[in-house]
Design a protein around this nucleic acid. Structure first.
Lengths: 302, 302
DNA sequence: CCTTACCGTTCGAATAAGGAGAACCTGTTG
DNA sequence: CAACAGGTTCTCCTTATTCGAACGGTAAGG
């Protein structure tokens, strides 16, 4: 029989202080318990438990083995609990840090549906615009939307999105639309972020980066607000798809220079390296991955 | 099959990157490997490895499980290595801190014979008179001889010895031997230790402690030296059995007040709690225990 | 002193688990 | 297109493991 099962047997016997009781607890015949303990002792070539009638005493070696066995058996049980689907439903707390706009626009539906699917999960969603420190603050997961992530084993690339340029119809009626990245400088530009000077990076036909540096007429760390501003005709704005596309669909904004290539924004699901994935975390990660694949078309060929 | 064996299977498969290779390495039919992996996936209700022909990719869940499995499988292997008698001979370094005189007198023979029995053990014996810090200095074991040990799970009571009073024949010829503990004060006393004032504790008939405080005419942290001093007729010395008995047997010293009761000295074998017992440490501890039982008569009824 | 209760071991019979090997499917390669 | 490599599935078979009953021993209690 398996090594772990033998160790577990020893643990139960020691805990029960008797072979009979151990057999009762394990719901197997005591003969089996006796025999397996004997086999274990044979394998280790030592007496683990001294059990002459009337004297029941664990050997020093037995004690030592017991100590170690308890640890490793506990580990295995933990793994089993985290991976086996003993109960179909998952439960417990789950805390996630999500970038404000991405979360609200892109994930709102998913998070609500996830919550409905798993009613016993207490989902705590923190909307943050600054990257949170996963190790210090106690989040299970965080989502990052950046150009490129430093190689992190705890980061999973779950999707992509991209920036596009938008302006309102009224603006485009009153101004001649730009025909190249360079011409953008002649337009009032709205920038996501707080810097006084900003840079937008595009890719030319050969994939080389073209950088447009400018002073934004308006800055904000809210893409939705910028979209609204652009809708009022303030100028041209660069927005990630999950903000721009809905506005575009509503007719609020019109895409400018749609053929201009831009490096994709990558979406990562990250989790603290210290924290091990339990079942509910795994399921969240899985469903999240599927959701993002569906929405962004990133094939996760498993 | 056992849980650990399944986890080990997963580890091997992942390491090999293929079911066929894993089967080859494990020297079992690949059908068995395939079946067991399938069973494992069933049990966990997840796909661990996606293995359509031409596409072999470990699932995220699989990766996570693999990480954990590696750890616990390693633990089990370590336990097996430390306990199973794969090879009858033990080998490797073994370092012990022993009190000077106890070690030399009481253990010399045992340590030499142990070394002869296990020729592949590099036995390093440090004779110390001060208790060493097991955690800081890197000893496998240390031996302590004290009246009473604070309750330490890492301390094993392996034997007992006791103090006795001795004097030389010449001294007893020239002086009247004491007839009670109190009368000791009228004699020159030799004390083990460095203090200017010393106390010896005895037990009266009812087991109550009787304390004799005195200024020793000679102090030393070497019992053998004190024995030699007493042999020259300096006075009465209190020595543990392992120093006094040989001297007595040689006729160098004669026991004084043999009926006076004294609290037994307990002999402990201790090891660092941080360090786990491996096979050679366990065997040393066992043989040491047996040796001490034989010499001191402390029954270790297992 | 004998009885009852409890414990652990041993034995043969019943059973369940794991492995072998062939047939099969499916992409890949030359 | 054929050979090949990798994985799956099926049946058969060997083995390990369990069960239950019988046995021997100790301890407590009338």
């Amino acid at each position: 029989m398996g090594q772990i099962e033998d160790l577990r047997l020893l643990v139960v016997i020691v805990d029960c202080g008797s072979i009979s009781k151990a057999a009762a607890q394990l719901r197997i015949a005591k003969s089996a318990v006796s025999r397996r303990l004997g086999l274990l002792e044979d394998r280790f070539g030592t007496v683990l438990i001294n059990r002459q009638p009337g004297m029941w005493r664990i050997t020093d070696t037995g004690k030592e083995l017991y100590q170690r066995a308890v640890g490793v058996v506990g580990d295995v049980d933990e793994i089993t609990a985290d991976f086996a689907q003993t109960s179909q439903t998952i439960e417990g707390p789950l805390s996630i840090s999500v970038p404000q706009e991405f979360g609200i626009v892109f994930l709102r539906r998913f998070l609500i549906e996830f919550s409905l699917r798993h009613k016993n999960i207490q989902l705590q969603i923190e909307f943050d615009n600054r990257p949170v420190n996963l190790a210090r603050e106690n989040y299970d997961f965080a989502i990052r939307v950046t150009l490129q992530m430093e190689n992190d084993t705890n980061a999973k690339h779950i999707g992509e999105t991209r920036h596009r340029l938008y302006a309102s119809k009224s603006y485009l009626d009153e101004n001649t639309a730009p025909t190249s990245a360079q011409e953008l400088k002649n337009h009032p530009l709205l920038n996501y972020g707080g810097a006084k000077r900003a840079e937008w990076e595009f890719l030319d036909d050969k994939g080389k980066p073209v950088i447009v540096a400018f002073k934004p007429v308006m800055s904000s760390n809210s893409g939705v607000y910028l979209a609204d501003a652009a809708r009022s005709g303030l100028g041209i704005v660069r927005l990630p798809d999950f903000v721009g596309q809905p506005a575009c669909a509503r007719g609020d904004l019109i895409e400018v220079l749609p053929d201009l290539k831009q490096a994709p924004l990558k979406i990562y699901l990250i989790h603290s390296e210290k924290r091990r994935l339990n079942r509910r975390m795994r399921i969240f990660a899985e469903e999240m991955t599927v959701e993002c694949s569906n929405q962004t078309g990133v094939q996760n060929r498993w």
